[in-house]
Design a protein around this nucleic acid. Structure first.
Lengths: 222, 222
DNA sequence: TAGATTGTTAATCGATTAACAATC
DNA sequence: TAGATTGTTAATCGATTAACAATC
């Protein structure tokens, strides 16, 4: 299998004896969390399932159903408390803590990612940036300095890095993915156009804005 | 409804008398197309449903089923011809032509998008870049010069722009979305963290890498 | 209270999957 | 031919929806 798959096995218990979430539920909860995080920034204290539906494009009944599976988080006639729903979903997704990211490529995309709030808002911290260009090594990006690519293995171990983000040209992506796999990283975020080959225990997510655009356009054209 | 929804109504005929694709089918076809485009670049002539499955994380039976609904595109024992499948899917998605994009924000993210192949590969062309910073106006980015934001309305009309891409800080996103709606743009791609309010006939896609990361992490942690 | 919204049920629809004959 | 892979069926599972009592 060239690319590691995210496999949902609903009904199978995890190491804590809880049932694993299905792929769909986990994906939807993550989306609710993002909207809630933003709603909180905008000063919203409560939110209804209908409002969540408007922003996530998920049916409001589905949202109430997803949430009520884990407890009675809402108040009838009022909605959900934003703060408390955020912490409930974080608990369900076990992503309450901090997670460290390594970023590869200090070009425009790398710099955009490093300076974005989006990862930081969800507890992800960019703790290392690598670039193969010696001219970029040492440059300050956000809170960290760009390192040479060959530091990878020991940095991954020292900094407890669980996610590698590839913001490099397509041709550079596969060799870096190989090194990340070798260093023990299990999640790779691929912003290059390359199709990556990794062992089955590794998850690759290839980000493709153009794909979303293609299908948005279909509904516009028809 | 704060955010325009993409609504799939399978079974309802479009203006050509053909049935509209369901949301799911259109999304999956778009993903196949991206993998095929990349496979073609790598010199691959044929591809099996299993290979497509490995790269898209869509079940191979589902892929064969999606495709066989439109014709017999494959050869048993061989797979699908990459070139011909690309053109078949383009035909199904009606995205064979060129589509013009306007990009807002000439920062790191805007420059990364403008210089990326991903949009270009799928027939999207960035024909205008806007920035509110006078210091950036006039700067050359890719093949176009950065324009002042107030040129928006006439540029949208003159250049036949169907998609607006927002690569701006959260606070700037809503006012720009309002202007785009006013200028008649029906598809907005939002790379800011802002939750946008638009009329129902406008589609907003908010890109959220952190959301995907959150749920990839869930399956890693459990 | 009256209005709003949750939590939950039941019915329907579409997606997913395994399996395998057809056939390149 | 023998091996591989499509096209297609049938069975299952999850998502969607309407409806509404409970209750804030």
């Amino acid at each position: 299998m060239p690319q590691g798959d995210v496999i949902a096995q609903s009904g199978r218990a995890d190491s804590n004896g809880q049932d694993r979430l299905s792929l769909g539920v986990a994906a939807r909860l993550s989306r609710y969390l993002q909207v809630l995080t933003q709603a909180k920034k905008m000063g919203k204290e409560t939110i209804s399932s209908q409002e969540l539906s408007d922003y996530t494009h998920v049916n409001s009944t589905q949202i109430r159903r997803d949430l009520s599976g884990f407890g009675k988080f809402g108040k009838r006639g009022v909605g959900y408390n934003v703060d408390s729903l955020v912490s409930q979903i974080r608990k369900i997704l076990r992503t309450a803590g901090q997670h460290n990211i390594a970023l590869f490529g200090a070009g425009h995309l790398g710099k955009a990612i490093a300076s974005s709030d989006i990862f930081a808002d969800h507890g992800f911290r960019v703790v290392a940036i690598f670039d193969s260009d010696p001219a970029k090594v040492g440059e300050q990006v956000g809170t960290v300095k760009v390192r040479p690519a060959d530091d990878l293995k020991h940095v991954v171990a020292d900094e407890d890095i669980v996610v590698g983000v590839l913001a490099v040209p397509g041709a550079a992506a596969q060799p870096l993915a190989d090194q990340l796999v070798d260093a023990g990283v299990k999640i790779i975020f691929n912003y290059s156009e390359a199709l990556l080959q990794v062992p089955p225990e590794v998850t690759v997510h290839t980000s493709s804005p153009a794909v979303d655009l293609l299908y948005a356009l279909y509904f516009y054209l028809t």
